[in-house]
Every structure is written in structure tokens, then in C-alpha cells.
Design a protein around this nucleic acid. Structure first.
Lengths: 124, 124, 124, 124
DNA sequence: GTGGTCTAGACCACT
DNA sequence: GTGGTCTAGACCACC
């Protein structure tokens, strides 16, 4: 059994940015903060911030213009795909956890609908 | 940014045992391994193992007999309640994650049903 | 014959703190000494002191803020409930002891009132 | 803070015998088991059993005839006094505990009467 | 500084 | 053998 399950900071920051893109808080082509600002905002090391952008660029979610900065991709298909990847991840994790404790499909759906309803009400 | 996602070992072990109880791999009244054996099996310290059983007892999931060992509760209502707690936890985490990326209720249900179906097929 | 009447240190310390809360010497929201200080004051191991606070938190009598310390609960209902629990414990122990030596209800009440009176006078 | 509050075995056994005398389960003049039998019954050391009788004799509750055994005192006044001592002990401990947590006389009496009632019912 | 967690090893009572 | 308790000392994240 291992104790150190900590998720690396750079992955956490990547998720935050991807979430902002996927929900539209960041639009295609939007400029992202400089690596240095990103480091300040999240209280992380500038090297870590740079790594965040490097990985985001590698997966096609962002692109970089030397001397200008880093931007959200303008490829809306890529963004839709990203949305789908994230949804799939969440759903597949959920399904494996819920089946692990022996819930039937009907119980799961019913419980889920109750939950969504109460959340929706809480927002109003 | 928080860097404290590590889940304590004793909680991880508690979850494993609770899962085994909830799925019936451990029946009401079953004897659990001695604290020392639990420590060996999971490669943890006997003290940590003792803590696992102490917490499980405090939450009414197990009970203890000095000199005899630790056993799964015989209160089946408590086990049903445990099942419900675990399901609620999983579902609520799922809902908050899925809403965070802006999925509607319909999209979620549809994606979910597809996933469950493919999992069910995989089992057959 | 049992030779195990020893009350664990951590329970003794818990009682002292609970008594101070119930009598108002510790008010809701008051900060308790740090686990390390508690250990020094009572001449116990820091780990034992930590256990005291862990148990007090688990029973809802205290709450804990990482890096800040441990505090008396602000839920006055919980404190009233604690008072009641302690009173019930004392009374039930008393009743079983007094019935064990074959005292009638009237004898008990009469003896008790005499005693309370003399105590009250002693206080004035 | 000290951990070892264990009550010595010989005192525990003394209490048991005194209780039996005071409730009439042992009548004045009754023969008590031999020290050796007492040791067997309670699972204690014969020396400890001997000490029990030594102390009971010293306080006038029992008397010993060489070669015959140990007997309950025939002095009924001593037995009544013993009863009173035990009642006083229990009551005084109770009063100090109950005042320590700030209970008024009325609360105490009321709680007590409820308790005695429910105990009496339980016996019927 | 605070609490949270873990390891290592000891002694005890009870079965 | 079992669990229950305690000590001693370590490292970590958080404020």
C-alpha cells in the first residue's frame, strides 16, 4: 500500500485550464497569462508553469507564438474532442466505482437523477 | 495551488474493507485478519492497522472482542447504510465533476447508459 | 477476578476537558492548547494528546483547523447533549451501585438530600 | 497523569463479600469459604485470599476460629454500620461528581427518580 | 507555529 | 495468540 498519491501540481493546473476552455470561460484564440503570471496566480514555480503550457501545446489544446504568448487553440473540433475526452474520463471512472460496489443500472440512474435535481435547485 | 491530494493509508485500507463488506465478499459476523496480519498483508505498521480497526469500530461497521479479534458487524441495517453512504459519495463526486465541465443532464445520462451497456457486455 | 480497572490516560484527559466545557470553564469556540502543549501539561506523549483531540473531534465536542489548532465546538446543542450524557453516566452508575447494596428509593433520596445540604452549606 | 489506576484485587474481593453481607446473602455467623476455596473461586492467589480475611477481621466484619474457619460477624450493629459506610461512600462520591458538572439539586433528584423508576420496572 | 500521518517497538490484559 | 495502550521520534502540509 502506498501513501503518496499526490497528483502533480502541473497536472492540476492543466485540468483547471482545460476546464475553463471546455466550459467557454476561455474562448478559441484567447490569450493565456504569461508563464510568469500563471506561476504567480497559482503560487507555483515558473518552471512548472512553463511545463503546463508545454504539455497543453503538445496535446493541441493551445499554441504558442514566440514573443506574443500562449493562446487557446482555434480548432473548435479539438475543443469538442477535449470535452469528450474529459467527459469520458469522468464517466468511465464513475461507472467502474459504482459497479465495484454492486449497484444496478436502475439504482444508479435513479440516484443520479435525484442528485442532479437537488443540485439544479441549489443553483436557482 | 494545493499539493495535498495524498489519501492516508489508513483511509485507503478502510475503503478496501468497506468495499468487501458492501459487496458481500465479507459477510456479517466474519472475522477480519488480526491487526498484525492486516499490517503484514498491506505492508503497513501494526499501529496503522490498529487504527483502521479502531475507526471501523467507531463507525459501527465492525466490532471487536478482546483476545478474539475484529469482526464485521452483524447489524445488516448498518451495512445497508454503509452501502448507501458509499453510493452517495461516488454519485455526488461524479455530479460535481460532470457539472464542472458544463454537461447537461441529458448528455450525462446518455453517455452513462452507453458506458454501462458496454461494461455489461464486457462482463458477459 | 478482573484486574483491569485501569482507565486509559487518553480517556482521563478527555474527561477533564469535557468537564471544563460542560461547566463553562471552556466556552464554545475557545482554543484548546496545542497537542504538544497538552502533552507537556499532562506529562503524556504528544501522540496520546493527539488521540485525545481526535476522539473529541469525532464525538463532535471539538473541531480542528489545520495549522491553527483545536477548538471547543460552537454548537451549543452538542454541549448540552454532552452535559446530559455525563449526567446520565454518573446517575446510572450511582443507581446500580446503590441498588446493589439493597437501598430502597426512600433511603437513597433521604441520604442524598442530607448530603447535598451539607455540601451546599460547605460552599457558603 | 498516571495510567495505573487498577484497584487491587484484594479490595475488589473484600467489596464483593461486604456486599453479600450487607444484602443478607450472607447472614451473621455464616461460615465463609476457606482461604484456599476463596482463592479458587476468584482465581486469585491464596496469599491474596488470606489477606482478604485478615482485613475483614481487622475491620470487625468477620472473625476467625483457628481450625474452624472464618465467619461473618454476629454483631448486627457492625453490619448495620457497614451498610451505612458503604452507602455513605457511594452517595458522597455521587454528590461530588454530580456537583462537579454543575447540576442543581432539583435536576439531580428528578433525573435520579426517573432512573430508579426505569430500573424498578426492568426488574419486574 | 499548528495538526496529520506513519513507523518502531514496548508492555499489558484477556482467551 | 488477540486487541489496547503508550512512548519516542520522524516527516509533511498548512497558516
Amino acid at each position: 500500500m502506498k501513501y503518496d498519491n499526490a497528483i502533480p501540481i502541473y497536472l492540476q493546473v492543466i485540468r483547471v485550464i482545460e476546464r475553463d476552455i471546455v466550459t467557454g470561460r476561455l474562448a478559441p484564440g484567447d490569450k493565456l497569462p504569461s508563464a510568469r503570471d500563471l506561476a504567480l496566480v497559482h503560487g507555483i514555480n515558473p518552471n512548472t508553469a512553463a511545463r503546463v503550457y508545454r504539455e497543453l501545446e503538445q496535446s493541441g489544446v493551445c499554441f504558442t507564438r514566440r514573443g506574443l504568448g500562449t493562446f487557446v487553440t482555434e480548432d473548435e473540433g479539438r475543443i469538442r474532442a477535449l470535452h469528450e475526452e474529459m467527459a469520458d474520463d469522468i464517466v468511465s471512472r464513475f461507472v467502474s466505482e459504482i459497479m465495484e460496489i454492486g449497484m444496478t443500472r436502475e439504482e444508479t440512474i435513479s440516484l443520479l437523477e435525484k442528485r442532479i435535481e437537488s443540485c439544479s435547485k441549489a443553483e436557482n
